[in-house]
Amino acid sequence: MSVARAYGAIAIAALLLALLPVMVQSNTVINALVTAMIIALAAQGWNLLAGYGGQFSFGHAAFFGAGAYGNAILQTRYGINAYAAMLTATAIGAAVGAVIGYLSFRSGLRGSYFALITLAFAEVFRIIANATPFTGGAAGTLIKLQVSAANFQFASRAIYFWIILAIVTAVMFLMRGIERSRFGAYLVAVRENEDAAAALGVDTLDVKLKAIMLSAAMTALAGAFYVQYFLFVDSSIAFGTWISVEALLGPIIGGLGTVFGPLLGALALHFLGELAKAVAGRVLGIDLALFGILLVLIIAFARDGLQGLLTRLARLWRARRPA
């Protein structure tokens, strides 16, 4: 895909999605769309580190939670303006990413070991957040409802949707830029063969650190936005395994290491989840069970995810048309 076409495709996808709240006015639908977009953003973060860089984190909740708690605490405890709080929370997320990344990559942790240590960090944060009064303990932290644009609180859910959509779109443009940059090439080299990349003079520690910081920042922004939308956070929302799992399911199902993968995957998962609830009723966990089955099927039969399936279908369709 040429550069112009790639950016064009992102813009068209964003515009089509932006029309959704105009066509459907149901609060439930818009609510689901906002959540899907938050997941898509967190998933973009995961995809940068794992899809492009090959470092599989099982604990992106650590970053999501840092953003979520960062935003909530800065506003409630220090009275900082919502916009500044969200930006600072994003930076805090990046800093947490830098610390975890520095510690683990310096020790040479890869593969399963890296997955394990990220999982452990998220779990440590969850236990601490659940036990300390500073984070509101087990009761969590509530942001006061004061609807006003100055507080980043809006009466209409559609506005939240457009904002998060704009953020996701911007991140997709950024990812497309990274794909074509020297940094992106280094990152893929690290994924394909870290030792070879190092032998060719790539500073692999530096590349991985940059990747985890950027990745953590994106996921932290998703967490900050989540809190801003729901105005509540507790330890199992912020640092629970659900977000670590959803952040990785999206890209894998949508297409690992692709710009569109996380968005496609997050939307598909939410559509599937709602469908499952509609068919099976309110059976607990049925949607996640389906996601798990989908994950296994995708890995077994379609390694390049939905994006790859769509590309193959398009190619078939084009081939069948007489030239």
């Binding site: 599989f56 593969g111 990785l248 069970a289 089955i293 994950l295 890995i299």
Partner: peptide
């Protein structure tokens, strides 16, 4: 790694 994670999600949520 991912398959066993997927299996754990399936088993846990079916339960």
């Amino acid at each position: 790694l991912l398959i066993t994670l997927g299996l754990s999600i399936v088993i846990e949520n079916l339960l």
